[in-house]
Design a protein around this nucleic acid. Structure first.
Lengths: 95, 95
DNA sequence: CTTATATTTAGATGATAAGCTAAATATTAA
DNA sequence: TTAATATTTAGCTTATCATCTAAATATAAG
């Protein structure tokens, strides 16, 4: 959960996720959308990967990234637990 | 939105929000729940306040903090926009 | 097998952020 | 008005993080 929120705290990484929501992309295609060096984007992708927010798969020379909506849903669960009736003890499914 | 995610990226701040979900608390009561100095907690509260995730109100010597669920819901909206059917263009209500 | 392309890893640097102690401010009580 | 309590502000230190360039790895093509 902490890795998830940490990963989501950077605007570049959130934009990467939005791009991947539309369709799977290669690392290069992702990097082309930013005024940031490829190594930096690679680093961001790695953080997203460690948080399991994205997955990657090599295809020839390219590495194709895709979003993992399951983890996104888990994160949303945290908000649901938060917004649930005020004063009611949380069910602890979401730490 | 960026302030919101930044604020949520710290585990201490997320725990503060969970405490405030149960009930409103004074700055001191909040600080007592952590092994962190009062000034540091005050700093965290200020970040949450700037993100409008909490509100404060002085009551005598104490300052009482409460959670602002509206902003929390807005943040959850970002996830909803994210999880919505893959490949479908986002409606842009959530950046 | 050598070159070109795609991506990552390594290492360095500057900025941001979390934590601390000490001092300032605000309120209440004596 | 002086002392006590609650909280914040200021200033500093250390750790984390985003970014860069240069070099390494992996695959594909000539």
């Amino acid at each position: 959960m902490n890795d998830t929120f940490k990963a989501l705290s950077d605007p570049t990484r959130r934009k990467i996720l939005q791009l991947l929501k539309e369709k799977d992309l290669t690392a290069g295609d992702i990097a082309d959308q930013f005024n940031i060096s490829k190594p930096s984007i690679s680093h961001h992708l790695n953080i997203l990967k460690q948080a399991r927010l994205v997955q990657d798969e090599r295809q020839g020379q390219n590495i194709i990234y895709s979003i993992n909506l399951t983890v996104m849903q888990e994160a949303m669960g945290w908000f649901l637990g938060m917004i649930g009736t005020k004063g009611e003890p949380s069910d602890d499914k979401h730490e």
